[in-house]
Amino acid sequence: MNERQTSDVRWVQLVERVRSGRDQRAFAELFGHFAPRVKAFLMKSGADASLAEECAQEVMATVWHKAHLFDPERASVATWVFTIARNRRIDALRKQRRPEPEDLPWGPEHEPDQSETIALQQESEQLGRALAALPDNQRMLIERAYFGELSHSEIAAETGLPLGTIKSRIRLALERLRHEMK
């Protein structure tokens, strides 16, 4: 047995001792070996030192609590530990990208001024007239696609029309609407 295989067997034995007897000495040895390596791994993947330290602590806590889930037939201890580390890093990134409740805007929304309201109302009326001026077969498809939020395929299934016909009619209708809205 070479040195690497010997150390792999040793790590498996330590995890088994943690799993079966909550052996703190075995865990301390695992922690002493893997925690600094996990921290370095996380820092190389872009985490700052404090986040890497926090994640490394969480990874090792997971090793302690989930030792019963380790299967030496599926992976080495190192692979298992670094997979946990990678997953913690992904979770930390997701958490950073998610706005905290205090970052969300609260309170009354911006009230549009009177000129914005009038312009929007005029535009809506113009669109209504343009829609009414469309041929019935085009208007019906536009209404289903944009107001009914149906896909072209769903409209084809509902109406029995070929998909190409639906796409052509919608394209023609949109061109007419663009022309009317200028």
Rank of each mutant, 00 (worst) to 15 (best):
R37W: 03
N87W: 05
E73F: 02
E29R: 04
L51F: 07
R98E: 12
K95P: 06
E29Q: 14
E53K: 00
A75W: 07
F41W: 02
S50F: 00
E100H: 09
R94V: 13
H33T: 03
K39H: 11
E73G: 13
F82R: 00
T79H: 13
G46E: 02
P36T: 03
K95V: 09
N87M: 12
A67S: 14
Q96H: 08
A61Y: 05
R88V: 01
R86C: 08
A92Y: 03
A28N: 13
A78H: 02
C55E: 06
D103H: 00
A47W: 00
F31S: 13
E58P: 04
M60P: 09
A40W: 02
H68Y: 14
S45D: 11
R86H: 15
S45E: 11
E58Y: 03
A85C: 07
Q96G: 05
Q57E: 01
T62W: 06
H68K: 13
R37Q: 11
W80T: 02
L51K: 02
F82V: 00
H68F: 14
E100I: 05
R86G: 13
G32A: 15
G32I: 08
L30M: 12
I84C: 06
M60W: 08
G32R: 03
A28W: 05
R74Y: 09
R98G: 03
H65K: 14
A92F: 04
A52F: 00
H33G: 01
R94A: 15
K39M: 08
S50R: 05
G46L: 10
S45H: 13
A92P: 08
A35G: 05
A92K: 11
P72N: 04
V77D: 00
L42V: 05
D71R: 15
E100V: 09
S76F: 06
A85M: 00
A40F: 04
K39C: 07
M60C: 09
V59G: 01
R37K: 10
S45Y: 06
F41P: 01
R89I: 01
F70H: 01
I90R: 11
S50M: 06
L69P: 04
P105A: 12
I90A: 03
A47Q: 02
E102P: 02
